[in-house]
């Protein structure tokens, strides 16, 4: 493909939205919202409710920012899909799945975030159990919507594995890593059965490993997207 035939304007800007999303989401949703790590499911309702009442302002700010920046993940996903179009056909279903997987993931971030925001909106008027219920509901949704993101992970992995270049845009290990992350998300299926231990929402497997392997994938893939965009501009 000739260098002149691909308009890469804004691609880098869009690609940079991925790491920005991870950073903002970690700080606002994670730290300010007390979701990184979350309250253990067996924590008493009073503990969750007290946190929301005493930190309502920071939780609200955190969730507002998290909701504002959630679309950044979709913008990033679209930039990855644009690079993928240079590997396989633009109309390929794999490219479409990579794109909609990113868009659907944004919804699965926005909706639960609004539940946490609801809990922080007037926590002084809500009973403890209701705040706990909103907190649980948000976590059940954000975790169990994993399959939506897996669609994106599988599509991106499969798409970049089809790269026939001598030096592919994305190394094979990273393409397979993404597929592995999507596969690992299946463990979230057992999350509703546990209130403590490794498979609980705050456990080593269903929180620490699952979230970290996904959050690491975004900036690493972004670094390769920047390199790929440069190569596309040079007509490689």
């Amino acid at each position: 493909m000739s260098a002149a035939s691909v308009d890469t304007r804004y691609w880098r800007f869009c690609a940079s939205m991925g790491p920005l999303f991870v950073l903002v989401f970690y700080l606002c949703w994670g730290i300010l919202g007390h979701n990184f790590p979350p309250f253990s499911p067996d924590a008493p309702a009073s503990e969750v409710a007290t946190y929301f009442r005493e930190n309502a302002g920071s939780v609200r700010f955190g969730m507002v920012m998290a909701m504002t920046f959630a679309p950044a993940y979709g913008v990033w996903g679209y930039s990855v899909a644009k690079v993928l179009e240079q590997v396989i056909e633009k109309d390929s279903i794999v490219v479409q799945l990579a794109r909609v997987g990113a868009a659907w993931t944004v919804i699965t971030l926005l909706v639960p975030t609004s539940f946490w925001l609801t809990a922080a909106f007037r926590p002084e008027a809500l009973p403890d159990w209701m705040i706990q219920m909103l907190y649980d509901m948000a976590w059940l949704l954000i975790d169990l919507a994993y399959a939506v993101t897996s669609v994106q992970l599988f599509a991106i992995g499969a798409g970049f594995l089809a790269d026939k270049r001598a030096v592919p845009f994305v190394p094979k290990w990273l393409a397979w890593y993404g597929i592995w992350v999507g596969f690992m998300f299946v463990l979230e299926c057992v999350m509703p059965y546990f209130r403590n231990g490794a498979f609980a929402r705050s456990g080593i497997l269903n929180f620490w490993i699952e979230f970290l392997i996904w959050m690491a994938w975004v900036p690493v893939l972004t670094a390769y997207m920047f390199k790929a965009i440069g190569r596309i501009e040079r007509g490689e």
């Binding site: 290990w173 397979w176 592995w180 231990g197």
Partner: peptide
């Protein structure tokens, strides 16, 4: 085989290693 598949295999075995550690601790 394929080097990328080996990466998947090693990553997967690491996940199972965590399973085994969790089980041993329990």
């Amino acid at each position: 085989g394929d080097s990328g598949v080996w990466f998947f295999i090693v990553a997967d075995m690491c996940a199972f290693a965590v399973f085994f550690l969790v089980f041993s601790a329990g």
